[in-house]
Amino acid sequence: MMNLINIFITAILTENIVLTKFLGICPFIGTSKSRKSALSMGLSVMLVVTLSSIITYLLYHNLLVPTKTEYLKTILFILVIASLVQLLEIILKKYLKSVHDMLGIYLPLITTNCAVLGIVLLNITNDYSFVEMLVYSISSSLGFTLVIYLFSSIREKLENSFVPNSFKGYPIALITAAIMTLLFSRYI
C-alpha cells in the first residue's frame, strides 16, 4: 500500500511527466493558451492513457512475452493507441455528444502525443505489477492535467504583461516552464 501511495505522489509532483520527463510538451505548449482548452486536453489524455495502459499491459504480458517478440512493442503500442483514439471518437460522438463536444479537436491529436506512448512504455520498462501500472498511469496523467492547467492560468496572465517582442509566445512560455520545473523538482 505504501508503495502505491509513493508511486501516486511522485508521479504527480516530483517526477511529473511533463516537467521532468518532457513527455507531452507539444500539447503543454500548444493548447495551454486558455484554461478551458487545457482542461479538455488534460481530460482526453487521462481517458486515453488509462485505457491504453490497460490494453497494452495485457497485450505485452500475454502476447509478446510468451512469443518472445518484445521488440515489436513500439509498433504494437502505437497501433493500439491510434485505433483506440479512433474508436473513442466514434463512440463518444454517437453516445456521449456533450463529452465529445467538450473534448472536440483534442482527441485526434492524442495519437501523436508523446505522453501516451511514453507512459505506456514506462509501465513496461519500470516492471510494474497490474495494480501499480493502473495507479501510475492514472496519477501521471493527473499530473499532466494539473501542470497544464496551472500553466494555462499563468499564460493567461502573461498575455497582458510586457515581454520583449522576440520573446513573445513560445520563448517566454518555455522560460516560465523552467521556473515551474524548479518549483516542482525535489532539488530545491
Binding site: P164, N165, S166, Y170, P171, L174, A178, S185
Partner: peptide, 28 residues
C-alpha cells in the same frame, strides 16, 4: 543539466533566434 535548464536554454535560444531573424512569426 537538470530539466529546468532544458526549458530555459531552449526558450532563450528561440528568443535569440527570433531577434536575429527579425520579427516573431511563431507567435501563437
Amino acid at each position: 543539466v537538470k530539466p529546468a535548464g532544458a526549458f530555459l536554454t531552449l526558450g532563450i535560444l528561440i528568443g535569440i533566434f527570433n531577434s536575429i531573424k527579425g520579427g516573431n512569426n511563431d507567435e501563437p
